Amino acid sequence: MSTATGPDWRDSNRAMWDERVPIHAASAYYDHEAFLAGKDTAAGFQADEVGDVTGKRLVHLQCHMGQDTLSWARRGAARVVGLDFSAPAVEVARDLAGKLGFGPERAAFVAADVYDAREALGGETFDIVYTGIGALCWLPDIERWAEVAASLVAPGGFLYLAEFHPLGNVLDWDTGTRFERDYLGREPFVTDAPGTYVDFGAATEHNLSYEWNHPLGAVVSALAANGLRIEFLHEFDWTLFQQFGTLQRDGGAHRQPEGTPKAPLMYSLKASRA
């Protein structure tokens, strides 16, 4: 089997994502028709915490098909750049940008590994470095990620991260109260199963993937070590997905039932550069 520290983890993950891009692009989950008609995927707590982006330069790391990236452009960002290691995803993002009337000077998309972002972006820095939900688990080295991400933050700018909480990632499906994995472990969680989160029954061939859990302390410490000041760290007792069997839908969120123990399921942070 491939080793987690060798190059094969990246090849496996990229093949897995590349194959799923057309499935995602055609899905009701991403609903490109609604997005093109005006759906704002950055709305909600993220928009509130990031604040006014009017006139700002924003880069979205691990942007997938670019809906969040383009939502920030719609919200007034002067320039947005989305970066993802999946070339098919970047092509979909470019197509969406064109259909929305955004030229590459306003909304550009780059196919590159996040660890190579500095070189891929030509040393450009940004007022806002944004990483959306479900991105960090695909990276083995959080310290290296923080070094690269921090280097993209311009003086006076900030990094904003919204993610699934690492504690929630290690709890059991049945109750969400028992540890099934090591919270502090560095070994990958390896899966080899068909389907995808928009269609669990999809017939897929490239199914081997590697994920890592990054403890909250590791994320915060890595950003601080690269010259960023933590402005806030928020933990939430709800999530956007049916992460455990016991979660109950509450509007657009999923929560544990009243009277049961509650774990943090998502978090967000903002870290600024002087």
Score class of each variant (00 low, 15 high):
Asn207Ile: 00
Leu208Phe: 07
Leu208Ala: 07
Asn213Phe: 08
Ala218Thr: 06
Val220Ile: 15
Val220His: 06
Ala222Pro: 00
Leu223Cys: 07
Ala224Met: 14
Ala224Gln: 14
Ala225Arg: 10
Gly227Leu: 10
Gly227Tyr: 05
Leu228Tyr: 01
Arg229Thr: 14
Arg229His: 13
Ile230Ala: 02
Ile230Arg: 10
Glu231Arg: 09
Glu231Ala: 14
Leu233Thr: 02
Leu233His: 04
His234Glu: 14
Glu235Cys: 09
Glu235Gly: 10
Glu235Ile: 00
Phe236Val: 07
Asp237Gln: 09
Trp238His: 06
Thr239Trp: 00
Thr239Lys: 08
Leu240Asp: 08
Gln242Val: 06
Gln242His: 14
Gln242Arg: 13
Gln243Thr: 06
Gly245Lys: 11
Gly245Cys: 11
Thr246Val: 09
Thr246Met: 12
Thr246Pro: 04
Leu247Ile: 05
Arg249His: 06
Arg249Ala: 13
Gly251Trp: 02
Gly252Val: 08
Gly252Phe: 07
Ala253Ile: 03
His254Cys: 12
Arg255Leu: 06
Gln256Asp: 09
Gln256Gly: 03
Gln256Val: 06
Gln256Cys: 09
Pro257Gln: 08
Glu258Ser: 10
Glu258Lys: 08
Thr260Leu: 13
Thr260Lys: 15
Pro261Lys: 13
Lys262Ala: 14
Lys262Gly: 04
Ala263Thr: 07
Ala263His: 07
Pro264Arg: 03
Pro264Gln: 09
Leu265Met: 15
Met266Pro: 04
Leu269Pro: 00
